[in-house]
């Protein structure tokens, strides 16, 4: 089943008065439970593609269907709501909220929408996720008291807390050393196996490329091998 479907997607950026094409017609299907990576050199359009999949940017041309919705047809409010329930983000720079502690950071996305569980269930669920990423003893710490690897684990927990259909990770290991990177990738792989959560990375980290089940090679805004794998 397709979670995300891209049809002839083009994206141009304006650099001053010059139009720079970032994506030049991308067709892509992402299926439930995929653990895949968009790979390519700098400037190949990895992040742009990820932004479009994550509904935080709109394409210049072509359709993007996320969870059955054509995002070009949604307004800002509906798009935000769609992101909230469908997509989890893991950023290269972690992007935790500095004034909230670990528990509160993980809880934060839940507070942005309507509460579906009781307070108690919610607490248990948050604790479960924090435990899953191995940070049970750091719940009361602020992000600036943690190492890079720990911060990224918090970000993973935050991305998973809303039980999204797809988690997008933009170069999640770029700011981590290789040992930590491996632990982080392992963690996500386990979650993918256990929870069937779809993961899409954008990276040029060969370790990730070796660990994922699918690689989408991106070159100059086009998928080099349209057949996938």
């Amino acid at each position: 089943m397709n979670v995300i479907k891209l049809e002839k997607v083009k994206k141009d950026y304006l650099l001053g008065k010059v139009t720079v094409p970032a994506l030049r017609g991308v067709d892509l299907n992402i299926e439930m439970g995929d653990f895949m990576s968009i790979a390519g050199p700098s400037g190949s359009g990895k992040t742009t593609l990820l932004n479009l999949i994550g509904c935080i940017d709109k394409s210049t041309e072509g359709n993007i269907i996320v969870d059955g919705h054509n995002i070009n047809e949604l307004n800002d409010y509906d798009l935000t709501a769609l992101r909230h329930r469908t997509v989890g983000f893991i950023f290269q720079t972690f992007n935790l909220i500095p004034v909230l502690n670990i528990y509160e950071n993980v809880e934060f996305p839940l507070l942005l929408g309507k509460m579906k569980q009781t307070k108690k269930e919610q607490n248990e669920w948050i604790n479960h996720i924090i435990e899953a990423v191995g940070l049970s003893d750091r719940k009361k710490h602020r992000p600036n008291e943690l190492s890079g690897g720990q911060r990224q684990r918090v970000a993973i927990a935050r991305a998973l807390v809303t039980q999204p259909k797809i988690v997008l990770a933009d170069e999640p290991t770029a700011n981590l050393d290789s040992a930590t990177s491996e632990i982080i990738i392992d963690l996500m792989q386990k979650i993918n196996e256990n929870e069937k959560t779809t993961f899409v990375f954008s990276t040029h980290d060969p370790m990730i490329v070796n660990m994922v089940s699918k690689v989408i090679p991106l070159h100059d805004g086009l998928i080099a091998n349209p057949s996938g794998v």
Partner: peptide, 16 residues
């Protein structure tokens, strides 16, 4: 800007 963008990306509405 980054913090605001993050809040918006993970589901924070404009009114938030």
């Amino acid at each position: 800007t980054g913090e605001i963008g993050t809040m918006r990306a993970i589901g924070g509405q404009k009114r938030f």
